[in-house]
Design a protein around this nucleic acid. Structure first.
Lengths: 249, 249
DNA sequence: CGTAGATTTGAACGTCCTCAAGTCGAGTGG
DNA sequence: CCACTCGACTTGAGGACGTTCAAATCTACG
């Protein structure tokens, strides 16, 4: 079927440079020295692409050749089963990697879709492996990123396997705000880049349930919601929803 | 709290050797040459430990120093939330790695519990990183393993997020038989090493639901179940349960 | 042979889903 | 600028699936 190579599918590339990127301390090159960063600029992360809202960066079955770092904007990744059911497996924002799923089989195993106009850095995987052999700390950081992705997935499994709708949505919102906060954004005010349906798919709920739960949170004074604009007024209350309100501790 | 170092917690070690291990083609050293295997025997995978049924190989919060390869027996891994909810995140059998969750934070982020008497190979992580810098194919194989773990987790998320009880249990059973088959066991007859409650925790169901679903599968002629002994008589029927019986295609 | 733990089964309940109608907002063209 | 349309979102009512609670059965193992 579709044999597109992701790195050729999108807008003309422009130069990228980790050494001067404001995300370098939360992205792949975290912890590298300046000379190492400059070597990465030259050999590894050389170009950026734009992916407009709604377009796929890659899709299931595409040949795997690169991983990608989100520079600006928001992505979702999803898997589909044979009978068409779809599950959103994650939302990625600036500084997070996409495409790690393809290393095992040399084919991408998820779809990566831009939720708004985005820019991504292309990291050719062959070169990444080669440089990881040379730069110790690059290898270490790459392993850390893969490991954290595994741990993150465990968290989602806990959420999907043992939490109720309200707990799931609360956990989702707090996770988003924490990641936004780490990038210098407000921890109380956010704009959702994804639809109710996409949130529901990620949380194992129907869009109506997501909508109802937002309304209930607002009625309970935890937040204000107006379409995709969220204002969290009681983050502690949200956290308590997850941890078990009061009783058993 | 508990600062136990997993590799010191268990029975006296005995020698391990990848080069003569019958699992070498499905485990970490897959694809390595004989000289490389022998170097691994000497420097990396030098000892095995026993972990008896019910004991933990490591637990959340333990310092991370090694990853482990299951040599014989079955493990489960689980995460717990603050309020005590527990989620089984996986079941590991011979040739599969445990402990990858700890690389990111240098602390284990799950509990790993032996479901029967087991033997595991200790792979000191510092040495693994060092050897991965030297042996190209070892690094590649390690990345493949991490990537496959991520993809496997996506499959679990699809299962938890969008499947009904019967579909979940069918997918679980087929996954088990496929992995057992790859290790030379029967694909139709298996003995469950985990309780109904552990299956339920993994699948996001209560133990009663798991039990009822087994009974229904038996009533429908898909399998025979007697306690933990399972005889699958209609694997195609189980697969159809997952893929969507017939209708929409 | 007795006890504890695991499993099965039943009945009532609750959460979330399904189906449906209505609201809201952005984009478009008259 | 306003009417129109489309998609996203909200809200309601009824129903389904899985849970909860309870009791009975079975097995393993000391």
């Amino acid at each position: 079927m579709d044999q597109r190579v992701a790195s050729h599918r999108h807008t003309p590339a422009c130069m990228a440079a980790c050494s001067t990127c404001n995300l370098r301390e939360i992205c792949l090159p975290m912890g590298l020295t300046l000379p190492e960063l400059q070597e990465i600029d030259q050999r590894l992360v050389t170009c950026r692409h734009k992916v407009v809202r709604g377009e796929k960066l890659f899709q299931t079955g595409d040949r795997f050749e690169s991983v990608f770092a989100v520079w600006t904007g928001f992505f979702k990744t999803c898997v589909a089963s044979k009978d068409g059911r779809e599950q959103v497996t994650g939302f990625q924002m600036a500084g997070e990697l996409l495409g790690l799923d393809g290393i095992g089989t040399r084919r991408h195993e998820v779809d990566a879709v831009a939720l708004e106009d985005t820019q991504i850095c292309v990291i050719p995987y062959a070169e990444l492996e080669a440089m990881a052999l040379e730069i110790n700390s690059l290898q270490q950081q790459f392993h850390r990123i893969m490991s954290r992705e595994i741990v993150r997935n465990h968290g989602v499994m806990l959420l999907l396997g043992s939490m109720h709708a309200e707990e799931r949505l609360a956990a989702f919102l707090l996770n988003l705000t924490h990641r936004l906060q780490a990038r210098g954004f407000s921890s109380s005010s956010l704009v959702l880049r994804m639809s109710r349906e996409e949130i529901g798919s990620y949380l194992g709920l129907k869009l109506e349930t997501v909508s109802r739960t937002f309304s209930k949170f607002q009625a309970d004074g935890l937040l204000f919601v107006r379409h995709r604009q969220i204002q969290i007024t009681d983050p502690v209350g949200l956290q308590q929803l997850i941890d078990g309100n009061s009783e058993d501790d």
